[in-house]
């Protein structure tokens, strides 16, 4: 049997494809972080929590939600649960969840995060870390830790045998969707007039404001967009992983490592590194599975030693 680096090609190609799929999530999440860091200078530790909220939002859109209504609204002397029924499919969730969660993000940015603008990074980090803890705690208390089921949409169930592996249709769709969204984001920020306003507003907010552009609004919208990207990733993740409160907390550390390796705030860097590290992780699972949990961090340490600004970062 022919082998490549001591591995049968089936195994190698299979793992490379899987790496690409995981990389799709890394890329989407680290892109959102990069956008937020680049424009707001906030290390958004709440990113994992909003990713989780995206997945829960998809679940609620499909199955409805029980909301506790205080007695003065319900007309009773107790807390009662009102069921808001809805049966919106995965495709609606893919559109609506980022909008809903993005709106929540914008609200949080306006009432909380805007107040610490211009302070040291550690304040933003602590604030968003605290937000994440509160959000995850609330969801965990309500839904437990093992999560809720969410099925693969009917049109995308099943898969194809590629010869070297069985590729589920849904996973192929995830890779495609992620690539399209990542490059659309890159294009908007780096190649359009809106993007140039955004970048200018980061460089010199007072000058941009002098041109009559509403900089605080742009910042809020940017945060909302970064959060929406995470929620989008959350909806994509719902059918594959569990819809569970800590799904983001377990992922966010790796995603931060991806951002650090790519270079904080670099849009292209986070996309390329996201996909790249997914593949590296996949390869590690072939050659030494036990190390697959730490390989990203080993790479991070090496990159920080050699090029502290990250692979695509510019020196400040």
């Amino acid at each position: 049997m022919p082998t490549i680096f001591g591995m049968p090609p089936q195994v190698l190609f299979g793992q490379l494809s899987l790496g690409l799929i995981n990389g799709s999530f890394y890329a989407l999440l680290s892109l959102g972080l990069a956008v937020i860091f680049g424009m707001l200078n906030i290390v958004n530790f709440a990113h994992g929590a909003v990713y989780m909220m995206g997945a829960f939002c998809a679940y609620f859109l499909l199955n409805g939600i029980d909301l506790p209504i205080p007695w003065w609204m319900a007309g009773h002397f107790s807390l009662m649960n009102i069921h808001f029924g809805s049966h919106l499919s995965f495709w609606w969730a893919l559109l609506l969840a980022p909008i809903i969660v993005g709106a929540i993000g914008m609200f949080l940015q306006r009432v909380l995060i805007a107040r610490i603008a211009g302070l040291d990074h550690i304040y933003g980090l602590l604030l968003t870390f605290g937000l994440a803890a509160i959000l995850q705690g609330l969801f965990q208390n309500q839904f437990g830790s093992s999560g809720l089921p969410y099925e693969i949409p009917d049109g995308l169930s099943g898969g194809h045998n590629l010869g070297f592996m069985f590729l589920p249709n849904y996973r192929a769709f995830v890779v495609g969707a992620s690539i399209v969204v990542c490059f659309a984001t890159w294009f908007v920020i780096e190649r359009t007039k809106l993007g140039s306003y955004l970048r200018a507003a980061t460089e010199n907010p007072s000058l941009v404001r002098a041109f009559g552009i509403n900089v605080p609004l742009m910042i809020t919208l940017t945060y909302g967009f970064g959060v929406a990207l995470a929620a989008f990733a959350g909806v994509l993740a719902a059918p594959i992983y569990q819809v569970r409160p800590l799904m983001g907390a377990d992922l966010i550390i790796v995603v931060f490592a991806v951002v650090v390796i790519g270079g904080m705030g670099s849009i292209l860097g986070s996309i390329v590194t996201g996909f790249g590290l997914g593949i590296v992780e996949g390869l590690t699972k072939v050659y030494y599975p036990q190390a697959s949990g730490i390989v990203v961090f080993v790479i991070m340490a090496i990159v920080l030693l050699i090029k502290p600004t990250g692979l695509f970062g510019r020196a400040a």
């Binding site: 799929i21 995981n22 992983y241 799904m247 377990d250 699972k285 599975p289 697959s292 949990g293």
Partner: peptide, 10 residues
Amino acid sequence: NTADFSSFLL
């Protein structure tokens, strides 16, 4: 506490 088992499953 692994999220993605696809490599192992393959």
